[in-house]
Design a binder for these strands. Structure first.
Length: 194
DNA sequence: GCCAACGTTGGC
DNA sequence: GCCAACGTTGGC
């Protein structure tokens, strides 16, 4: 692909195989290519911790038990293969981000909704209409240090992160690329201080 | 244990 | 559709 010309405000022309394509078309097509996105998933470590994920076969687990429609809709509509996820420990003395996972399977029926013995059993759920969805995540990296919520809250640029805002209960939260970078910088900083 | 900030339920 | 009552999450 070769840059040809810019004609003021308006579509930029690109040449590809002797054909001219306006940039807006190109951008539209690029949107069809999944762009890696970032998330934060909350878990109570008493239920499932990053250590449990480390010990899981293939460092992989099915992230089940999501019983909130907003979170489910994010799983269904937004979460894509290869998306990166911060693993967050909630409702514990050591609250914070403990590592990074990757989405290795997109939304599918939450098996706990179909399991009568599960505390997350949903009597209305069927295989055809599972109601609740789960994704699979695989551990990428456990941080050498936990990044405490208190530090996240006092870090510039993270004010808009869900976990930093009071009363935000959403267990699947979008994270911007900028926020992702800032947190990784924090990890380096905190790890080097030890 | 308290309580803020939600989300859900159900009567009307 | 409105909204009061109730339930849940999760920080403190």
């Amino acid at each position: 692909m070769r840059f040809v010309s810019v004609c003021g405000p308006g579509p930029i022309l690109l040449s590809r195989n002797r054909q001219f394509v306006v940039l807006s078309d190109e951008m539209e097509r690029n949107q069809a290519v999944p762009k890696r996105q970032f998330w934060l998933f909350k878990s109570e470590p008493r239920e499932f911790s990053i250590t449990d994920l480390e010990n899981a076969p293939g460092h992989t687990t099915t992230w089940s038990g999501i019983r909130n429609y907003q979170a489910r809709n994010l799983l269904r509509d937004q979460v894509q293969l290869g998306d990166q996820v911060f693993f967050y420990h909630s409702s514990t003395a050591d609250k914070g981000i403990v590592g990074v996972c990757e989405i290795t399977r997109t939304a599918h029926a939450d098996p706990t909704a179909l399991d009568p013995n599960s505390p997350y059993f949903e009597p209305r759920a069927t295989t055809a209409e599972p109601i609740w969805l789960a994704v699979d995540v695989t551990l990428v990296h456990r941080f050498p240090v936990l990044i405490p919520l208190s530090i996240l809250k006092s870090t510039d640029g993270l004010e808009r992160m869900g976990v930093c805002r009071p009363g935000n209960r959403l267990s699947i939260q979008p994270v911007s690329a900028d926020e992702w970078k800032i947190v990784l910088t924090l990890v380096k900083k905190l790890a080097s201080r030890r």
